[in-house]
Design a protein around this nucleic acid. Structure first.
Length: 760
DNA sequence: CGTGTGTAGCTTTTT
DNA sequence: GCTACACACG
């Protein structure tokens, strides 16, 4: 219960509402904090940690706090440090992945990964997987490396090694994929490498050992897990092993669980009370971030989900401005509208930070183009990551090889950049020459020793070998940035870049310089080479968010946990948001809806939504349909009702249009189109008990006169039967429809398809 | 062996 | 629209 009297005056309780105070004061035993968006979660967590240290006399070293991003971890540590008098270096605040790295670097020799390993990023994983698939003679057409890796990741997230996964291999594809899994693990071990999932998986294995569990269980008397709704099975088990004192405090919000595709299991939070029947549950429902209009929209939307514990956000910030929705005729125009409204907002609130959010990274391109054209500076988060750029990865390959000579993937990369006259043939010979339990460099050495190489390859490989034999001493002498400079020089990388002399090469040099300063910074923090490499690969998009930026562009996933006075959410179309791949299952849709919820609740004062009737996706023109989520918004939260340009065909809502398939470029089809739109939205309004809008002529740029049937048109095909047009590309002879039939989607050339419009 | 060109295939979301 | 890969050429 919230304290009264002198306790309420305690500085760590200042400005906290009763449930928040209760969460801070909770003493021993499990605690579930259901923290709604904007409910002051971080304040509560940090004050709780501070309270434990200051008032309960808990030593910082026996508190472990887990987060998902480095940024969250750093913020938590900073804020706790500012609250308490004693130094908090001993406090363990880290991401799951860096926690596991730390554990494995200490006790990893009890696991197959050992203590010295590199962490493979997705591109390293991919090259290893490609070799595995080639070795197993599995065609990449059926065994797409990325697909197989996702499949493996799924097993790892559920803590299943190949032997255990075998039991689930009921069909031929799965059986072969499990073979690939087994060989992939072998490959990782040979490289002295592990992937992201291995970090969790093997740490969990390690914690199954009673002695280890005892040790760390004793050490961490208080455990705190942030974003608990995003934990996967491995993380869940890890926490269970550690929480021996049952002083486990988990914080989360089931409505913001958006990482199911990465193995996160929403049931972890839904079932916390079952796991810990004695757990205290506290809901933080007062929102300090957004206006009532925004919260109403968010609450109404999320109420459509079934997988909930349930909370109701409220605020005393007042109703605020209603949500603005803009329907543009085309993607580029949508982007230009955003630019215009950004300028308007700037004029009204010069200091207000703005964010443009989208479902997938590809959507940033058009926005960037429009922003550049308008000379508006912006900050893009995510997309192609800095450490994934070719030149940076090249240099990293050298560093990795210095740090871990067993890394064949990095060897292959380093040895062929800059070009040394080593092609597939020489490479194969080198690999064949690698001694058992030996390194690629030893392979090169033995080949050279036997005098089996000549000409350019011989000369260059000697130098290459020489570089690595000296690297250790150079690192000692020059330090991290110095070593980098030395490598760039000695390897001939810099020279090759200079000789190129292109503008592009100049850009790459700038990136390398930036990388050099990152290394200098790391050295300043006392990091050594292996730690620096860990840090690079474990760095997340979210870590590089600049919260002070005036205008930020990012995915909704990246925006989780952030807030902005005004938010633009673009691309509100079916198949974009909700994403096309998520629409088949109910769980998929609920996760998309949570994503929408997250997006809405980022806005403090004003939310803009937008969509485009038409947009280019993967090079072809796609006619969009309104996102189903738009219909879930409460009409009174919107500035103006939502209108569209094509029918929304949902079972029971499909509307027959009169009229004929458009053939010419006259305006008749446009008119019938508009007729249908109004029909649809009037129906929606009628269902909401509101009168139909008076007709209003929308701008009639749609269809562009190419005479294609619009998306949503029902058609009959002699081959496939009834279907619905979902997109069209090309024109004239090349006009192609994408049509959804009962049995799946097909692309059909209009000229040959003998398609008819379906009358009934 | 390395480089340039054509083309298929694809984009969720990320530690 | 982009990229990553296969193939042809110098």
């Amino acid at each position: 219960m919230p304290p009264t009297g002198p306790l309420a005056e305690h500085p760590l309780l200042w400005n906290l509402n009763p449930p928040q105070q209760e969460a801070v004061l909770h003493a021993e035993g499990p605690l579930l904090i259901l923290a709604g968006a904007g409910s002051g979660k971080t304040t509560v967590i940090t004050r709780r940690v501070a309270w434990l240290i200051e008032e309960q006399g808990v030593s910082p070293g026996s508190i472990l706090a887990m987060t998902f991003t480095n940024k969250a971890a750093e913020e938590m540590r900073d804020r706790v440090q500012r609250l308490v008098g004693v130094p908090v270096e001993q406090l363990w605040v880290s991401t799951f992945h860096s926690f596991c790295t730390r554990i494995l670097r200490r006790d990893g020799d009890r696991t197959p990964v050992g203590r010295d390993f590199v962490i493979f990023d997705p591109s390293d994983q991919r090259s290893l997987m490609k070799r595995v698939l080639a070795e197993l003679k599995l065609p990449e057409r059926q065994f797409h490396p990325k697909k197989v890796l996702e499949f493996i990741s799924d097993f790892k997230n559920r803590c299943l090694l190949p032997a255990e996964a075998r039991a689930e291999a009921l069909d031929a594809w799965t059986a072969r994929a499990v073979d690939a899994y087994a060989l992939y693990q072998e490959g990782l071990r040979n490289h002295r490498a592990c992937d992201f999932d291995d970090l969790l998986l093997f740490t969990e294995r390690l914690f199954r050992e009673p002695a280890i569990q005892e040790h760390y269980g004793q050490r961490f008397r208080y455990i705190l897990v942030d974003e608990y709704q995003d934990t996967n099975r491995a993380q869940y088990l890890l926490v269970q092993h550690l929480a021996r004192h049952r002083n486990l405090c988990v914080v989360g919000d089931e409505d913001q669980s958006i990482y199911g595709w990465r193995g996160a299991d929403i049931r972890n939070i839904l079932d916390f009370q079952r796991d810990f029947p004695e757990a205290r549950q506290i809901k933080l429902e007062q929102n300090y971030r957004s206006t009532q209009a925004i919260l109403d929209a968010a609450s109404t939307v999320i109420a459509n989900n079934s997988q909930r514990i349930g909370k109701t956000l409220w605020t005393d910030l007042g109703h605020g401005e209603r949500i603005t929705f803009k329907l543009a005729d085309e993607g580029r125009l949508e982007a230009e509208w955003v630019v215009q409204r950004v300028l308007d907002e700037r004029a009204r609130f010069p200091e207000g930070r703005l964010a443009v959010l989208y479902r997938a990274n590809w959507q940033s391109r058009q926005l960037e183009e429009a922003l550049r054209a308008a000379n508006l500076p912006y900050r893009l988060v995510g997309g192609v990551k800095f450490y994934e750029r070719a030149e940076v990865k090249d240099l990293i390959a050298y560093l990795r090889l210095i740090s871990n000579p067993f890394d064949l993937v990095s060897f292959r990369r380093a040895v062929s950049t800059p070009s040394r006259g080593v092609g597939p043939t020489t490479l194969a010979r080198i690999e064949a020459a690698i001694p058992e339990e030996g390194t690629p460099l030893e392979g090169v050495a033995s080949l050279l020793g036997r005098g089996e190489l000549k000409g350019r390859a011989q000369r260059e490989l000697k130098g290459f070998l020489d570089l690595f034999s000296r690297a250790g001493a150079e690192l000692k002498a020059l330090g991290l940035p110095g070593l980098l400079r030395w490598v760039l020089h000695e390897s001939g990388y810099l020279q090759a870049l200079e000789e190129e002399g292109t503008l592009e090469a100049e850009g790459r040099m700038r990136n390398l310089e930036e990388f050099l300063s990152a290394a200098a910074e790391a050295e300043g923090m006392g990091l050594r080479l292996p730690e620096f490499l860990d840090r690079i690969t474990l760095a997340a998009d979210a870590d590089e968010v600049d919260e002070a930026a005036q205008l930020s562009l990012m995915t909704i996933h990246c925006a989780k946990g952030l807030e902005f006075p005004a938010v633009f959410l673009v691309g509100m179309e079916e198949d974009v948001f909700p994403n096309r791949n998520a629409r088949e299952t109910e769980e998929g849709l609920e996760e998309e809806r949570r994503l929408f919820y997250v997006a809405i609740t980022r806005a403090q004062r004003k939310l803009f939504l937008s969509a485009a009737r038409r947009r280019r996706i993967m090079g072809s023109e796609v006619l969009g349909m309104p996102s189903r989520f738009l219909r879930e918004l409460p009409p009174e939260a919107l500035e103006t009702p939502i209108r569209w340009g094509t029918e929304l065909h949902r079972e029971g809502l499909g509307i027959q249009s009169p009229g004929r398939p458009p053939r010419g470029s006259d305006g008749a089809s446009v008119a019938s189109e508009l007729h249908r739109i109004r029909g649809f939205f009037d129906r929606v309004r009628a269902a909401q008990g509101r009168p139909p809008e008076t007709p209003r002529v929308e701008s009639s740029q749609e269809e562009g006169g190419d005479g294609a049937w619009p998306a949503g048109t029902r058609v009959l095909s002699p081959r496939f039967g009834r279907g619905i047009v979902t997109a069209s590309t090309g024109r004239g002879e090349g006009l192609t429809y994408t049509i959804r039939f009962e049995g799946g989607e097909k692309r059909i050339l209009a000229r040959f398809g003998m398609l008819e419009r379906d009358p009934g």
